[in-house]
């Protein structure tokens, strides 16, 4: 998919270096977003505790979604017509919406978990966990 987008950006704007620069910035932002989402996925699997998992998911999810959507809006931009501007404006609206809502929803989830007596791991728990070889026991 990335190769097709990159080749499309290359073929469309071979005659104008400005559009090639805009499209390659968009593709680069998409790839950077995928890297951040890889961090989120690894963190969700590897971290030992609910709060650390929430840390990985909240940050990486927000930034990767924003980067991917903004880069996609730059790639879809082809000319300065009204429809193209409207599309970019809508995508930037989603980016702003996600920038506001994802941290607040993860804050609400964290607060609900803390009120529900879900305690974070302490120093002793981590020592116990290391003695057992890093495997948490099944609840």
């Amino acid at each position: 998919m990335i190769e097709t987008i990159a080749s499309a950006a290359l073929s469309e704007s071979a005659n104008s270096p400005g559009w090639f620069l805009v499209h390659s910035i968009g593709v680069g932002m998409g790839i950077l977003g995928l890297v951040f989402f890889l961090g989120t996925a690894v963190g969700m699997v590897r971290f030992p505790d609910f709060y650390t998992r929430m840390h990985a998911a909240g940050k990486g999810d927000t930034l990767s979604t924003m980067l991917m959507l903004a880069g996609f809006g730059l790639v879809m931009m082809e000319d300065f017509s009204a429809g193209s501007w409207l599309l970019l404006l809508k995508i930037l609206g989603i980016v702003l919406f996600i920038f506001i809502t994802t941290p607040s929803s993860s804050h609400a989830l964290m607060r609900a978990a803390f009120e529900d007596d879900e305690m974070p791991l302490g120093e002793k728990d981590l020592k116990k966990l290391r003695k057992r070889g890093g495997k948490p026991s099944a609840r």
Binding site: T40, A41, F50, A57, T102, S106, L109, A113, R139
Partner: peptide, 29 residues
């Protein structure tokens, strides 16, 4: 796929909700 693993195997319910939230955000993309 790793987030689906966390949804299925998650030790607490909050892990599952967190995974569903992440997948929902990525579905918009």
């Amino acid at each position: 796929i790793p987030i689906l693993y966390r949804i299925i195997m998650g030790p607490t319910g909050f892990d599952r909700i967190l995974g569903v939230n992440v997948i929902g955000t990525k579905t918009a993309v």
